[in-house]
Computed example of a mutant assay.
Amino acid sequence: MATTEAVPGPAAVRRRSLLRPLAFTATLAVVLGLLFGVPWWSLVMAGNDWPVGVRVAGTVVFAVALVVFPVSMFLGHGRRVDWAARTGDTILGAVWILFVWAIAGDLLRLALLAGGVDDPVRSRVAAGFTAVVALGLGLWGYREAMRVPRVRRVEVRIPRLGAGLDGLKIVQLTDTHYGPIDRIAWSKGVTEVVNSLGADIVAHTGDIADGTVGQRTGQAAPLGDVRAGLARVYVTGNHEYFGEAQGWLDHMQQLGWEPLHNRHIVVERGGDRLVVAGVDDRTAAGTGLEGHRADHALALEGADRELPVLLLAHQPKQIDAAVEYDIDLQISGHTHGGQIWPFHYLVRIDQPVVQGLTRHGARTQLYTSRGTGFWGPPFRVFAPSEITEITLRAAER
């Protein structure tokens, strides 16, 4: 007997439309309450027995930060107001570091309790531990984020690579995130390091900027001075689709780069050839931009299937399609290596790899960079940035 599914009536639809924003607001309130409340309690209240003035001052600082944070994030990233983005991002990074180490401080408090140490000494020692470690890591993390990245060198053996291409050097940039903090000097420093490496191919695997071309032209300008013996290639990341993806593709072409917008080129050295292909970010299809989607078939259309293939794809999650299309090496970014420890555990829920060289299937390898720049909070804690030098090696004879 045929059955029919009940169609929700107008009242049910209205209830759902009301519940969704309420659920979102409640979830946000809980997250913010924990993020700000845990360090407030550990540092200011608990069993510290601080003078009243200290407790009041500490409470006011956390309360003001709690109010300023969502407003500045909305203005900064919703309305693209740079000063607000700088404020919100800095608060986010600082409170995340405090939250993590306040939990560690609470564990120390429990250990001291087990050891017979009474309050207020017990809680003051735990609070002091949290404050000193968080401050130290914050200052160090800021320096790590703002410095020109170190070079990370990796060798990848490609069995199908011809002898003429043995030793081919690829320099990867990714997640530069030119944004509300003006980093023109940093960008020039990155270009100087890249040019010192004598790359055959320089590849930028997306998230070039947070903002439009007009907003970030100055920071991106040094990319026009990058040198490569055979090719400079670029693909979009998810953040391009928050702004103007096509604008960045066009601008990179004006700077002399090859935008691999679901297309490929072929490079040759010593009589052997390599296909260098690129696909749009996996989020591109959902943006509604005409012609923007991750299309491996289009990217490889007309390519000699006997040749080895280097694929640029922003997210490690795109590796499944690379395996399907017998790609030899995919290079990606997106994860930032977690950026601020221990956020990499959350990244791992969404992505198959956080950083480094991994194998997928019989042929395909994936290299995931920790990123050249940073997004949002100007901190990197236990997740250093990198300019990656990848040397391709032919099969052992």
Rank of each mutant, 00 (worst) to 15 (best):
S187V: 04
A57L: 14
L135W: 00
H177S: 06
M146K: 11
V64W: 07
V148E: 06
Q351K: 06
A245W: 06
A245T: 09
L329Q: 04
A221F: 10
M1Q: 11
A126K: 00
Q330P: 06
E192A: 15
G136W: 05
M1V: 13
E258T: 15
W83R: 14
V56T: 12
V233H: 08
E258I: 10
L35G: 09
T87D: 00
I184F: 13
E240V: 10
R293V: 13
L392V: 07
I390D: 06
I349S: 01
V7P: 01
V235E: 08
H360K: 10
I265R: 13
T372H: 10
A221W: 09
H344A: 14
A303M: 09
R183Q: 14
L274G: 12
L165G: 03
P120Y: 03
V347D: 05
R143M: 06
M45K: 11
D250F: 03
G136N: 02
M252L: 15
G47K: 03
A29R: 03
P377H: 04
K317V: 13
T4F: 11
W341Q: 00
V31K: 01
A199Q: 11
M45I: 12
Y325V: 01
A231E: 13
G116S: 06
D250A: 15
V52Y: 08
P8A: 09
G88Q: 04
E396P: 00
A199P: 07
L223Y: 15
V44I: 15
L108W: 01
E155C: 02
A12M: 12
W248R: 10
S369L: 08
V235R: 07
